[in-house]
Amino acid sequence: MSRQVMFLLKELELTLQRLELWQDEMPSEDALASTQPFAVDTLEFHQWLQFILLVRFRNMLATGQALPTAVAIYPMATEVYKNKLKEHALLLDVLARLDETLSGKPVERLQ
């Protein structure tokens, strides 16, 4: 599973870049220290993906830690991008596959 997750994390990074959501400048330490789910109070969702999710998951894989199995990234993404589903279809697909890989359960996808 870790190999598949590593592949999906790389695909997530490339998709964020393709959609021009990738940022070169890191948010402030205060913004990254949010305790809210998805750092909704301090970061845009794509920033959370880049600077928190990708960093944490890659660190977990590198140090042999167990990855979370109770995940719901796709539902949050569909809410965030509900007015731009077509524009973010590639991103939503990657996140659905990441959720499915981590949880071992199919994700009910929007049509």
Rank of each mutant, 00 (worst) to 15 (best):
T63F: 04
I73C: 07
A66L: 05
L49M: 08
T69C: 03
A66H: 03
L53Q: 11
F57R: 13
P75F: 00
V40R: 14
F38M: 01
I52Y: 07
L43T: 01
A72Q: 13
Q65E: 07
V40F: 14
A70V: 07
W48H: 13
A62M: 03
I52W: 06
V40M: 11
Q50V: 07
L61F: 01
Y74C: 01
V71L: 02
V40A: 06
T42H: 00
A70N: 14
P68W: 06
L43K: 03
R58F: 03
Q65S: 05
A66V: 09
I73S: 13
A66K: 08
A77W: 07
A62D: 14
W48G: 07
V71Y: 06
F51S: 10
T78C: 12
P75M: 01
R56N: 10
R56G: 06
I73M: 13
G64A: 06
L49P: 11
I73H: 14
H46G: 08
L43M: 02
Q50I: 08
R58V: 00
R56T: 11
F57C: 11
P68A: 06
P37N: 05
Q47G: 10
Y74L: 08
E44H: 15
T78H: 07
W48M: 03
Q50W: 06
V40E: 15
L43G: 07
F51Q: 14
D41P: 03
Q36A: 15
G64F: 00
W48L: 03
L67M: 03
P68L: 07
R56S: 15
A39F: 05
F45Q: 05
D41M: 01
R56C: 03
Q36D: 14
L49R: 07
P37A: 06
F57P: 04
L54C: 14
Q50Y: 06
T63H: 12
A39D: 13
L54A: 04
E44P: 14
R58E: 10
T78G: 11
Q65Y: 01
M60W: 02
E44Y: 15
V40L: 11
Q65A: 04
V80W: 12
Y74Q: 11
W48D: 09
Q36F: 07
L54H: 09
V55C: 10
L67P: 07
V80R: 10
L54M: 12
Q50S: 08
Q47S: 08
L53W: 11
E44V: 12
V71H: 06
D41Q: 02
V80H: 12
V40Y: 15
D41S: 01
L54Q: 14
A62V: 00
Q47R: 10
P37F: 03
M76S: 02
A62K: 15
M76I: 00
I73R: 12
F45V: 01
F51E: 11
F38I: 02
E44D: 09
Q47I: 00
L61R: 09
G64P: 05
E44Q: 15
A77R: 14
T63M: 10
W48S: 04
L61C: 06
L49A: 04
A62W: 00
L53S: 02
M60N: 10
T78F: 07
V80D: 08
M76F: 09
T69P: 04
P75G: 09
